[in-house]
Computed example of a mutant assay.
Amino acid sequence: MEITHDLLAGLSKSFGLFYLIALSIAVTIYAFWPSLGNRFDKAANSILDDEDGPCR
């Protein structure tokens, strides 16, 4: 079997596709993990908690 440019390009595109799909699934699972909810809520509200008052 001869390794051609078309074969290598097809393999790299397929690997990249499955890599990005796996990465997006992992990020989605991480974002919706139940024990991390408090951390995300704290991060979302931390900017609002630091305000002293209206801008001058």
Rank of each mutant, 00 (worst) to 15 (best):
M1K: 06
E2H: 08
E2K: 13
E2I: 08
I3W: 08
T4N: 04
T4S: 12
H5F: 05
H5N: 13
H5D: 14
D6Q: 12
D6C: 07
D6Y: 02
D6S: 13
L7W: 01
L8H: 02
A9M: 04
A9I: 05
G10D: 01
L11G: 08
S12F: 07
S12C: 10
S12Q: 11
S12K: 06
S12V: 07
S12E: 02
K13L: 12
K13T: 14
K13D: 09
S14W: 01
S14I: 00
S14G: 03
F15P: 05
F15W: 14
G16M: 00
G16Y: 02
G16A: 04
G16R: 03
L17S: 10
L17K: 12
F18I: 13
Y19V: 03
Y19C: 05
I21W: 07
I21Q: 10
A22I: 02
A22Y: 00
L23I: 08
S24M: 01
A26Y: 02
A26T: 05
T28G: 13
T28Y: 11
T28K: 04
I29Y: 04
I29C: 07
I29D: 02
I29F: 08
Y30L: 09
A31Q: 01
A31K: 00
F32H: 09
F32E: 07
F32L: 13
W33C: 06
W33R: 12
S35Q: 11
S35R: 13
S35E: 10
L36D: 02
L36A: 14
L36P: 01
G37W: 00
R39Y: 11
F40M: 08
D41Y: 05
D41I: 13
D41R: 14
K42I: 08
K42N: 10
K42E: 15
K42F: 05
A43M: 09
A43C: 01
A43P: 00
A44C: 04
A44G: 12
A44L: 07
A44P: 01
S46V: 02
S46G: 11
I47R: 03
L48I: 12
L48R: 15
L48A: 15
D49C: 09
D49K: 15
D49W: 10
D50F: 10
D50W: 05
D52L: 12
G53M: 05
G53E: 03
G53H: 07
G53N: 08
P54R: 08
P54W: 01
P54L: 08
R56A: 11
R56P: 15
